[in-house]
């Protein structure tokens, strides 16, 4: 290069090399840590019920009896995200259950589109501290499903509120939002592109 490197003494040159390698190691470590935060976040959410996340794996029924003294209202809301022809209906909008009592509620998936498509129902619970105590025995949460054109499918949700649900929680709201599953068969999104495409 143009200006000669200043003559570093031997040990400061090795010191520099050591510092550089330690910094590079720290950098790679922190970059990996950023990506490790993603699964860590999910684990943390399930443990603390942060942001209404719900454990998606089915859990066994807890048989430690029903707490007759308390009634908790569980509300169900079904919503459809954009881009999917489906309609999600629920048998009853609200149930009153005792903590510990397994309950079943019927949900109907209804594909009103003119062709088969893939979709899934994304759950969310509020208040967030209740989501740890909402045990799903059988649930379609996050399951990718394929419905033929015009097909209607009944899927039950069996759940159980654990007995140690905090006493100040007496209403739990469970929301399911329908979303298309990208990448599977041409979902609604693909063929409307041409409708928009022409105008650009």
């Amino acid at each position: 290069m143009t200006t000669p490197d200043p003559q570093l003494s031997r040990e400061s040159r090795s010191g520099v090399r050591r510092t550089v390698w330690r910094s590079v190691a720290a950098l790679v470590g922190m970059f990996a840590f950023a990506f490790a935060l993603v699964p860590l976040y999910d684990v943390f959410c399930q443990v603390t019920g942060l942001n209404g996340k719900v454990s998606n794996s089915a859990q066994a029924v807890m048989h430690d009896g029903v707490d007759q003294s308390r009634l908790v209202t569980v509300q169900f809301i079904t919503r459809s995200g954009s881009g999917l022809h489906w309609q999600l209906g629920v048998e009853t909008r609200q149930v009153r259950v005792h903590p510990g009592q397994p309950t079943e509620v019927g949900f109907t998936f209804d594909n009103q589109g003119s062709e088969a498509s893939w979709g899934r129902a994304v759950p969310s619970v509020s208040p967030s501290q209740a989501s740890q105590h909402l045990r799903k025995i059988s649930c379609f949460c996050f399951d990718e499903q394929r419905l033929a054109a015009g097909e209607r499918r009944e899927i039950p949700l069996v759940f159980q509120l654990s007995r140690d649900l905090p006493s100040d929680v007496n209403t739990v709201t469970l929301v399911y939002t329908l979303y298309p599953v990208e990448g599977r068969e041409a979902s609604q999104q693909a063929n409307t592109r041409s409708l928009q495409g022409e105008e650009a």
């Binding site: 954009s82 881009g83 999917l84 022809h85 298309p180």
Partner: peptide, 22 residues
């Protein structure tokens, strides 16, 4: 006409066009 109805009712996923069904 059908696709016009589909777009208004079901919206377009990933774009600013919401589903007006609900």
């Amino acid at each position: 006409r059908d696709r016009h109805i589909d777009t208004v009712v079901d919206g377009v996923s990933g774009a600013a066009m919401p589903a007006f069904r609900s």
